[in-house]
């Protein structure tokens, strides 16, 4: 039982990271029909922004803020203006292919500029353990989960309770009608890219102390978050949350009770099952499209 609690808890911590990244997938899809196959690398890059700032002698809190700001500039503003906008007018597929190329570019650039080796990344969360029903619980795991979920709740509140959030939702639902109603659609789309950049930066700051900062660190995360977004429902933020948490738990239980070798296959089985029996995702909404 103690082992089971530990597995669920560490699964929730990893799943919360997947959820943060998966929300980015759904936000970009809803507002600009962008499927970002470089999302995993977007999680990897902010860690290196922070490490570069730390190397300049800055303290960790400042380095994290600089990392966040640089992420929003590079992975938000520049990504939208230099890649998404010019390519989107050619359709979703060319843009998706461009994001695949971007993923390779980011990995190779980090490898060349920084190093191919893994680097330690400092944690800003408390460490240590606490005993819970006889189980030795990692405070870091609990903190990652709590921090990520708080970020998601804050995002939900922003979208539901602020004027800007509601305008962003209107843009996501129907940009043409939103524009007629006077919503600055372009600005709302830019906000979405900035939010995505902030979410991946947060995911990076939370996971890099555990997985280490490495140019290839985004590969696993990107795939897991993509699966989580589809399993939960690509058009719903709550779907990305459910998908992320579910995937984190399933991944951990599969590794413990089935096999480490097959742990990577279990989420894919889950994905196939969802596509076959509930294509809109567990929490998603069926959408009709004109062909």
């Amino acid at each position: 039982m103690m082992n089971f609690i530990n597995l669920i808890l560490s699964g929730l911590a990893t799943g919360a990271i997947y959820a943060l990244v998966a929300i980015g997938f759904t936000l970009l899809w809803q507002t600009s029909q962008t499927i970002n196959f470089a999302q995993g690398e977007f999680v990897m890059v902010p860690a290196f922004f922070v490490l570069a700032t730390l190397n300049l002698g800055m303290p960790l809190p400042i380095a994290l803020l600089v990392g966040l700001a640089l992420s929003m500039l590079v992975l938000g503003v520049l990504f939208k203006n230099l890649l998404v906008d010019p390519m989107l007018r050619h359709g979703v597929l060319p843009l998706a292919i461009c994001t695949m190329a971007l993923s390779i570019f980011l990995k190779e650039t980090v490898k060349e500029v920084y190093s191919a080796e893994a680097s330690p990344f400092p944690s800003f969360l408390p460490e240590g353990n606490l005993i819970f029903f006889g189980a030795n619980i990692s405070i870091q795991s609990v903190s990652i989960f709590v921090f990520a979920i708080c970020a998601v709740l804050a995002l939900q509140a922003f979208l539901a309770r602020t004027s800007t959030g509601r305008q962003m939702q209107a843009t996501a639902q129907n940009p043409y009608v939103a524009k007629l109603l006077g919503v600055p659609v372009e600005r709302m789309i830019m906000y979405t890219f900035l939010i995505n950049a902030a979410l991946v930066a947060l995911a990076s700051f939370l996971i890099s102390p555990v997985y280490l900062a490495k140019f290839s660190a985004g590969e696993t995360l990107g795939l897991a978050a993509f699966i989580a977004a589809i399993v939960g429902g690509f058009n719903q933020i709550r779907g990305a949350i459910v998908g992320g948490l579910l995937l984190g738990i399933v991944d951990n239980l599969a590794a413990a009770y089935i096999s480490t070798q097959y742990r990577g296959a279990v989420p894919l089985f889950l994905l196939i099952a969802v596509i076959l029996f509930r294509p809109q995702g567990l929490m998603g909404r069926a959408e009709e499209r004109t062909v």
Partner: peptide
């Protein structure tokens, strides 16, 4: 007897198995 994969990032389940 716990086998893991090269390049593996998450060792939570493996450590739980080792402790068991």
């Amino acid at each position: 007897d716990i086998s893991t994969e090269a390049g593996q990032a998450d060792f939570a389940a493996d450590v739980v198995k080792a402790k068991s």
